[in-house]
């Protein structure tokens, strides 16, 4: 089955099996491995990316369901090689990662969260990230980073 999508602004077209999950398509076919696979059961959020601007767990979507969509992965956030996205900058500034495995998914979920709630309270950030698990339990600094990005006026992805 043919799938045509835009990934980080670049058109992609591939023949895939219908059962191919979006995250495997992105990692193995498109070749962008920044999106991690964690639990593979739509619990942990490590595979979060944006489909038409909204956060989605890419282990729970078929690549064929994304046909025609615009997909943004962690690799597509930064405006240039030398510049980070404000959410990435905020994660660095607030030391919002330890092992880093959850980070791509956390950043993508956080970008989507700020699009829906541009000025969230701390409680709204915590609830808004309920779909993303950090096994280092580094939530405190992650929440601080999202609040920091919000106060700095994050740009949309």
């Amino acid at each position: 089955m043919k799938v045509s999508v835009t990934v980080n602004g670049a058109p992609q077209e591939h023949e895939v099996e219908p059962r191919t999950l979006l995250v495997y398509y992105i990692r193995d076919v498109v070749g962008l491995t920044g999106t991690n696979i964690g639990c593979d059961t739509s619990s942990c959020g490590a595979c979060t990316l944006l489909v038409d601007g909204e956060s989605v767990k890419s282990c729970t979507m078929l690549a064929v369901q994304a046909d025609g969509a615009e997909i943004t992965t962690i690799e597509g956030l930064a405006p240039s090689e030398s510049e980070m996205h404000p959410m990435q900058e905020a994660f660095r500034e607030k030391h919002a990662l330890q092992c880093g495995y959850c980070t791509p998914g956390m950043v993508m979920a956080a970008v989507s969260l700020l699009q829906e709630h541009p000025n969230p309270t701390e409680a709204e950030v915590r609830e808004g990230l309920e779909g993303n698990l950090c096994r280092c339990t580094g939530y405190h600094n992650i929440v601080q980073a999202v609040l920091h990005a919000a106060s700095a006026g994050s740009v949309p992805a």
């Binding site: 739509s42 959020g45 979060t48 489909v51 909204e54 956060s55 989605v56 767990k57 729970t60 979507m61 979920a109 989507s112 969260l113 829906e116 808004g128 309920e130 779909g131 993303n132």
Partner: peptide, 9 residues
């Protein structure tokens, strides 16, 4: 229901 990612789909 679920979490924001689940509610988007």
């Amino acid at each position: 229901v679920g979490d924001p990612q689940v509610r988007h789909r």
